[in-house]
């Protein structure tokens, strides 16, 4: 396992390996998202309770899944960086933060837009919404700590440790918010059991989820390539014998 990591954690090898994957992902993700959008907007039927607003689900739910998945990805790659000190994993983690911010923002925005016609308000201090807001702030914190240490390797470890502490803390935050909500607010407004998901709705949902996943991989690979190239340029500029 470790040997395998060592082989592909080398940035140069990673680039040659990633190039075809990136190109395929670029085409496939755009295709899948387009097909998913067509299914979501035109082909899927309106819900019998929520009517047309159910179409927001096809972008809201995959974005929420993605933001959780991306945090898990950041957490594990920064743990790998902290333990084995592969710089590649740090770059992977750092470059996924912006995408995570975008997806979390998407989930929050579409959630509140979905909430207005169904529950009557844009925002409820519900456990799930609150914990997502906290997740959004943790993402922003990661982004801030990246920017405030620009061009210094000190920030690398600060970033890694913050992702680590955040990873430990997120379940606790989620649990505490759940606890807080169940005591104070009877579950009257939100009832997820109301939606019965039929297969016609599952198709666009999964298409969008897969499309977002591929989009994430594509943007990530592009960003990593930019970062590696930037590093290479700085490295060559500062070589003593150059």
């Amino acid at each position: 396992m470790l040997k395998y990591f060592h082989k592909y954690a080398n940035p140069g090898k990673f680039l040659t390996l990633a190039l075809p994957v990136r190109k395929i992902m670029g085409i496939v993700s755009i295709g899948v998202v387009t097909v998913g959008l067509i299914f979501a907007l035109f082909l899927s039927p309106p819900d019998y309770q929520q009517k047309e607003t159910v179409r927001i689900m096809y972008i809201h739910v995959p974005a929420a899944w993605m933001s959780l998945m991306i945090y898990a990805f950041i957490f594990f790659s920064s743990v790998v960086f902290l333990v084995w000190k592969f710089p590649l994993f740090l770059i992977l983690a750092k470059e996924s933060v912006t995408i995570g911010v975008i997806f979390t923002f998407t989930a929050l925005l579409t959630g509140s837009l979905w909430g207005k016609p169904t529950w009557g308000t844009y925002w409820v201090w519900d456990a799930r919404l609150t914990s997502f807001l906290v997740l959004f702030f943790i993402y922003l914190g990661l982004k801030l700590i990246m920017d405030s240490f620009s061009y210094s390797s000190k920030g690398d470890y600060a970033f890694g440790y913050l992702a680590l502490i955040g990873g430990f803390n997120l379940p606790i935050i989620k649990f505490s918010v759940d606890w807080w909500n169940t005591l104070h607010q009877p579950a009257s407004i939100l009832r997820t059991g109301g939606i019965s998901i039929s297969s016609e709705m599952l198709i666009p949902l999964f298409l969008m989820a897969i499309g977002f996943l591929f989009l994430f991989i594509y943007i990530l690979l592009v960003s990593v390539e930019i970062n590696l190239k930037k590093r290479k340029i700085i490295y060559y500029k500062n070589k003593p014998d150059n």
Binding site: Y151, S152, S153, R231, I234, Y235, N238, K239, P240, D241
Partner: peptide, 9 residues
Amino acid sequence: ERNYKIIFN
């Protein structure tokens, strides 16, 4: 190597 630069060799 410090801050992605080689300081001395």
